[in-house]
Simulated scan of single mutants.
Amino acid sequence: MLGTVPLLALVLVLALVLALAKPACPSVASAASQRAEALKRLLEVFGMEDPPAPPAHFKQPPQYMVDLFNTVANADGVTKNPDILEGNTVRSFLDKTHGEKMRFLFVLSSVAKSEKILTAELHLFRLWPRATNGPKRHHLCQVSVYQVLEKSELDTPGGKKLLAARLVSLQGSGWEVFAITQAVRDWTEDESSNQGLLVTVQGLGGGPLGPPPLQFASSSDPHESKKPMLVLFTDDGRRGASLPVAGFPDLGPQAPVLPPEMSVPKLTGPRSTRSLDRLQPCQRHPLSVDFEEIGWSGWIISPRGYNAFHCKGSCPFPLGENMRPTNHATVQSIINALKLSEGVSSPCCVPDKLYSINLLYFDDDENVVLKQYDDMVAGSCGCH
């Protein structure tokens, strides 16, 4: 019997240890699930169900898309010129014909059915003309872009449809842009109708030129920045309350706004510090969003992160105009101060101006997308 007492005590100790250890596992699981849920909600803010897979190999984004991002946004992605973009999304697609000259194919499977196609542009890089020994009789040629309707009948009237045509100089090099919006709308409505584009170069009278004095870079061009590209300006219908701002938004620290009648008492000690925090007037504070820390740096090209800012502080009575209160907040402040109704709190310190940000990123098909998101940065704070 004496031997069973220590054994019983050991069993009780082990049971107690196991009981105390059990909450640690749910805690870890809870933290992991909470992070997963938080990232899922953040993806919803960015209009995605899952984060795109990073490109398998290093890819240089088209220079056009990089330049467009830098024109629209600052280094943190905050919109500095809201009137440039048509819609809120710009998608770029590279040619998939593997270098076939004057024939181009762009796969648009990543464009959602709900996305409204506003403008579609074919970007072709005009190469330097080849040197010829004969006299230069022409300085211009006619370039035509056709939508292919039937590959096997390109020479018949029903085999192709003219989308754009214009005169192009035979001197120099550079980008030529052609509007092909209707063809892309057809392709997004019926994916099987996408049989590509055909580009022809003719003389001023529409006659053939041989050999062709004008050539465009193909998808096999060693220079990534010269490859043929389709650019779509679209709108996905996601709009917030952000208002366009004239010029570049001032995102410096917001000065505290104290009504002249209020003075902050001098307090000391830990509890006093907490009390002082509550007495700090409503103002804007930094809130850093780091995409690398979140684990999104593999597919986001720019920015690497941004400052979302947040509003914190008190809205003490009386509310001065410098606290930008709404009429409702002023009335609520009076009711709260005079205790005219039970359960009425003082107004809250919240953003009263919001700015949009822009992301430049690779989608699941390794196409580069520029997307603008409303209401992502607190521009200033007020009592509401």
Rank of each mutant, 00 (worst) to 15 (best):
3 G>H: 12
7 L>V: 14
10 L>M: 08
12 L>Q: 07
14 L>N: 14
19 A>F: 10
22 K>C: 07
29 A>E: 15
33 S>I: 09
33 S>W: 12
37 E>G: 02
65 M>Y: 00
74 N>R: 14
80 K>T: 14
81 N>T: 09
81 N>H: 08
85 L>H: 06
88 N>A: 12
89 T>H: 00
92 S>Y: 02
94 L>D: 05
97 T>W: 03
107 V>K: 14
110 S>Y: 05
117 I>W: 05
124 L>K: 11
130 R>G: 13
137 R>G: 14
142 Q>G: 02
145 V>H: 10
151 K>A: 15
154 L>Q: 09
159 G>N: 09
159 G>D: 10
167 L>W: 04
171 Q>A: 10
176 E>G: 03
177 V>Y: 05
179 A>I: 01
180 I>M: 06
183 A>G: 11
189 E>F: 03
196 G>R: 04
199 V>P: 05
201 V>K: 08
201 V>Q: 04
212 P>A: 14
217 A>N: 01
219 S>H: 03
225 S>C: 09
225 S>K: 12
239 R>N: 02
241 A>T: 09
243 L>N: 13
264 V>Q: 10
269 G>T: 00
271 R>P: 00
274 R>S: 05
280 Q>T: 07
283 Q>I: 00
286 P>Q: 08
287 L>D: 14
289 V>G: 02
291 F>E: 06
294 I>V: 10
301 I>H: 07
302 S>K: 13
304 R>Y: 01
309 F>M: 09
310 H>V: 02
311 C>A: 13
325 P>L: 05
325 P>Q: 07
335 I>E: 07
335 I>V: 15
335 I>L: 14
342 E>C: 02
343 G>V: 00
344 V>M: 07
346 S>Y: 11
351 P>Q: 02
367 N>E: 12
368 V>H: 08
375 D>Q: 07
375 D>Y: 06
379 G>F: 07
380 S>T: 10
382 G>V: 02
384 H>K: 13
